[in-house]
Design a protein around this nucleic acid. Structure first.
Length: 444
RNA sequence: GUGAGCGUAGCUCAGCUGGUAGAGCUCCAGACUGUGGAUCUGGAUGUCGCGGGUUCGAAUCCCGUCGCUCACCCCA
């Protein structure tokens, strides 16, 4: 016997998604793709590995993400590479690299995949986490902002998510923001002593963050601080108004949150976030905004953009909770349509053939791998959730008719021992039990 | 990076002030020789996270360490 061998675990902040969970994720992704496509987005796949400089230049050299959260390493040839902490930079990089702007018009791209940030893990936050996001490149029209947000609300509704809130703000542009920051710093100077310890620090390092503070005692002070909206330039103000009235027209409820701040430097004008009550401290399910200068920052032509990223881990968490509270069936483990039970070696050939033919019709079939007793086979069939059990034993081989048992009702019929006939029988029986569940797509 | 809580069977956990490890669920077998989910009966499984210390004796107390979780920070 070998000595005790220490098993290797998944690395901190990463995790395995196992079957019932992966089925939920598939449902979420399918719905997202459907909605994105309905709004004219097409998929882009960019590398997970990028040059480190890409993120330093886009996300911002002294943001938390870049200064302490990136997985960065030297490649063998000394080049510094980074596991992407977000994907907007990559999409814009690809947009520039492939000169997509030459095609003119709008580019609407969506993506989905893992991102990496070396944070301390907690509920809804992982070092490898997943985002589904989309970008609209090539227009600064407020209708883009409206339409994209509207799409997100539709997606959340499709997923039967309840209790989410859209938070909206404008962070201005390079023309008006510096002025506001000056005013904010000045105002903070005066009240700084009364703020919580964290905010006293933020007042210096990152004044916008003070606005986002959640400490109860600070709220009255924060309320009275100058607000970005009051310092927007004419263009930014008009843009914000247009977005708001557009949202109203499309029936999307939002909350003005003058203090909504986002952590990436490239945002301009519209910023938004959707939060869910179901999540704990990390309550932002998705966030995004406009980034009109990003293309230029990355060496491309002027190309205004708008985009968002959904935290898939968090969305899945919220969706799961929401479904538990509603009369919606969570997607079950995929259930086989039929279990084929055979008794006696002579029946194996017929059973294997039946399984093969049914599977060729994309029916989900399980078959026993040893000649069990019937009792045991039925036990297995009900355990794995098979809807039917096909019984093939000596009697069935002799008569040329299989027994097919409906595991729900217990009803049992004889069906001619021909794969086509069995398939037809199964189709007919399942067709009768219609009723499709909108949230799970599963027949009930 | 900081703080707190928690690591006991495959899962959920009990085991109080130290006396040599238990329940429920699951799993397996039988009652019931070709008809499942119920019930009953029986059975299996543990480096008590790891290392050290105190003690006649440690799952229990102390120290260290690793891991997980939640929160801060920040964000999805």
């Amino acid at each position: 016997m070998p000595k005790h061998i220490e098993p290797i675990q998944s690395v901190k902040g990463t995790r395995d998604l196992l079957p019932p969970e992966t089925e939920l994720w598939q449902r979420v992704e399918e719905e997202a793709r459907r909605v994105f496509q309905a709004y004219g987005f097409r998929e882009i796949r960019t590398p997970i590995l990028e040059a480190t400089a890409l993120f330093a230049r886009s996300v911002g050299a002294d943001t938390d993400i870049v200064t302490k959260e990136m997985y960065t390493f030297q490649d063998r040839d000394e080049e510094s590479l980074t596991l992407r902490p977000e994907a907007t930079a990559s999409v814009v990089r690809a947009y520039i690299e492939h000169r997509l702007y030459h095609e003119g018009g709008l580019h609407k791209l969506y993506y989905l995949g893992p991102m990496f940030r070396r944070d301390r893990p907690q509920k809804g936050r992982y070092r490898q986490f997943y985002q589904m996001g989309a970008e609209v490149l090539g227009s600064d029209h407020p209708a883009i902002d409206v339409e994209t947000i509207e799409m997100l609300v539709l997606l959340l509704e499709r997923l039967a998510l309840q209790e989410f809130t859209l938070l909206l703000n404008s962070v201005g542009c390079p023309r008006c923001r510096p002025e506001y920051l000056k005013v904010l710093r000045r105002a903070l100077e005066e009240v700084r002593a009364n703020l919580c310890a964290d905010c006293q620090r933020r007042a210096v390092t990152n004044p916008l963050r003070v606005l986002d503070c959640k400490v109860e005692a600070d709220q009255p002070i924060i309320e009275r601080l100058p607000r970005m909206v009051d310092y927007l330039c004419m263009e930014c103000r008009q843009h914000l108004e247009a977005v708001k009235s557009g949202l109203q027209d499309s029936g999307v409820a939002y909350q003005d949150v003058p203090r909504l701040v986002r952590g990436l430097d490239y945002y301009t004008r519209t910023t938004f976030e959707i939060t869910s009550g179901a999540l704990g401290a990390q309550n932002a399910i998705l966030g995004g905004g406009r980034y009109d200068g990003l293309s230029e920052m990355l060496g491309g032509p002027p190309a205004p953009g708008f985009g968002f990223a959904i935290g898939e881990d968090r969305l899945a968490l919220a969706v799961k909770e929401a479904w538990e509270k509603q009369p919606i069936e969570a997607p079950r483990a995929r259930r086989p349509l039929a279990y084929i039970a055979w008794m006696g070696d002579a029946a194996l050939g017929a059973a294997a053939k039946l399984a093969r033919e049914l599977r060729r019709q994309n029916l989900s079939i399980e078959i026993s791998y040893q000649p069990n007793k019937l009792k045991r086979a039925l036990g297995t069939a009900s355990k794995i959730g098979a809807r039917f059990t096909v019984i093939i034993g000596e009697g069935e081989l002799a008569s040329g008719r299989y027994q097919v048992k409906d595991m729900g009702t217990g009803q049992q019929d004889e069906v001619e021992a021909d794969p086509g006939k069995v398939a037809a029988y199964l189709h007919e029986k399942t067709a009768k039990r219609e009723g499709s569940n909108p949230a799970t797509g599963e027949r009930t």
